Simulated scan of single mutants.
Amino acid sequence: MIAQQKKPTLITHSRRKFLKVLGSVSAMTALPATSFANVHSTKDHSLSLLNLHTGESLDSTFFAEGQYQNTSLQALDYLLRDHRNNQVHQMNTNLLMLLHALQLDFDNKPIHVISGYRSPESNEKLRAKSNKVAKKSYHMKGEAIDIRIPGVPLKTLHKAAIAQRAGGVGIYSKSEFIHLDVGRVRQWGV
């Protein structure tokens, strides 16, 4: 097994991090009440994921008793690593909350992951093969994921993700997945 990179701690006291968190909280107030309540709820938040490239699956409660669970977050980071080179990156918790909300919409069916974190090297290799890969992809920041849910029509999943108004949502019908990110709210279809 390849050794994992040392990840930054989840708690930091830098001004930049504080401002980023403050901006995220401000942005969350623009979400529909159900999404905002879901993110700040004291209820448990779990995910059931299958990484289609590694075959690994995980059922994990990443938020419980009003706080994030570090061990579960680390397990999710590992599952969502760049499968091309095994680089692990801390995934954005707003993205995990979005996945949780979508999973609830579809009776907690397991989410199949096509791509989570993507290292800059992997992103460049993919960009060389396709003009549909962004130069500054949110995947490289742990803020994007490509998914499908078996038994859920892609267009239905796409509409449900758009309804969350939590970031970018793209549908890739030929490749049978949707892209989610926690950047600005926008949508597209291919």
Rank of each mutant, 00 (worst) to 15 (best):
Pro32Asn: 13
Thr34Glu: 12
Lys17Ser: 01
Ser41Gln: 09
Ala30Trp: 10
Leu52His: 04
Thr42Cys: 07
Ser24Phe: 07
Val25Cys: 09
Phe18Thr: 05
Thr34His: 11
Leu22Tyr: 10
Met28Pro: 00
Val21Leu: 15
Val25Ile: 14
Pro32Trp: 12
Ser48Asn: 10
Ser24Gln: 12
Ser26Cys: 10
Val25Tyr: 13
Asn38Trp: 02
Thr42Ile: 01
Val21Gly: 05
Ala30Gly: 09
Asn38Ala: 12
Ser35Met: 07
Asn51Cys: 15
Phe18Gly: 01
His53Val: 01
Asp44Val: 09
Lys20Gly: 04
Leu49Thr: 06
Phe36Tyr: 13
Ser46Pro: 05
Pro32His: 13
Ser35Val: 01
Ser35Gln: 03
Asn51Pro: 01
His40Ser: 05
Leu22Ile: 06
Pro32Lys: 14
Ser24Gly: 06
Ser35Ile: 03
His40Gln: 01
Phe36Pro: 00
Gly23Cys: 07
Val25Pro: 00
Thr42Ser: 07
Asp44Lys: 09
Leu19Gln: 02
Ala37Cys: 07
Ala30Thr: 10
Met28Trp: 07
Ala27Asp: 08
Ala37Lys: 04
Pro32Thr: 12
Leu47Arg: 03
Met28Leu: 14
Leu49Gln: 04
Gly23Pro: 01
Lys20Asn: 08
Val39Phe: 10
Lys20Gln: 07
Asn38His: 12
Ser48Lys: 14
Ser35Leu: 07
Ala30Met: 09
Ser41Ile: 08
Leu47Ile: 03
Leu22Met: 10
His45Phe: 11
Leu22Trp: 11
Leu47Tyr: 02
His45Thr: 04
Ser24Ala: 12
Asp44Arg: 10
His40Asp: 04
Leu49Ala: 10
Asn51Tyr: 09
Leu22Gln: 13
His40Arg: 03
Leu50Lys: 13
Thr29Arg: 15
Gly23Met: 12
Leu47His: 04
Ala33Asp: 12
Ser26Ile: 05
Leu47Lys: 05
Met28Ser: 15
Thr34Trp: 10
His45Lys: 15
Leu52Gly: 01
Leu19Ile: 04
Met28Ile: 03
Leu49Trp: 04
Met28Glu: 08
Asn38Phe: 10
Leu50Ile: 14
Ser41Asn: 04
His45Gly: 02
Phe36Gln: 02
Ser46His: 12
His40Glu: 00
Lys20Asp: 11
Leu47Val: 03
Ser26Trp: 13
Ser48Ile: 11
Ala37His: 07
Met28Thr: 00
Lys17Arg: 09
Leu19Tyr: 01
Lys17Gln: 04
Val25Asp: 02
Leu19Thr: 00
His53Pro: 00
Asn51Gln: 15
Asn51Asp: 14
Val25Arg: 07
Phe18Lys: 08
Ser41Asp: 07
Met28His: 08
Met28Ala: 11
Asn38Gly: 06
Ser35Arg: 09
Pro32Tyr: 11
Pro32Gly: 12
Thr34Ala: 15
Met28Cys: 11
Ser41Arg: 08
Val25Leu: 15
Val25Phe: 12
Asn38Ser: 13
Phe18Tyr: 14
Thr29Gln: 15
His53Lys: 07
Ser26Glu: 03
Ala30Cys: 12
Leu19Glu: 06
Ala37Asp: 10
Ser46Tyr: 09
Ala37Arg: 13
Leu52Phe: 09
Asn38Leu: 11
Ala33Cys: 11
Leu49Asp: 03
His40Met: 02
Lys43Met: 06
Ala30Ser: 11
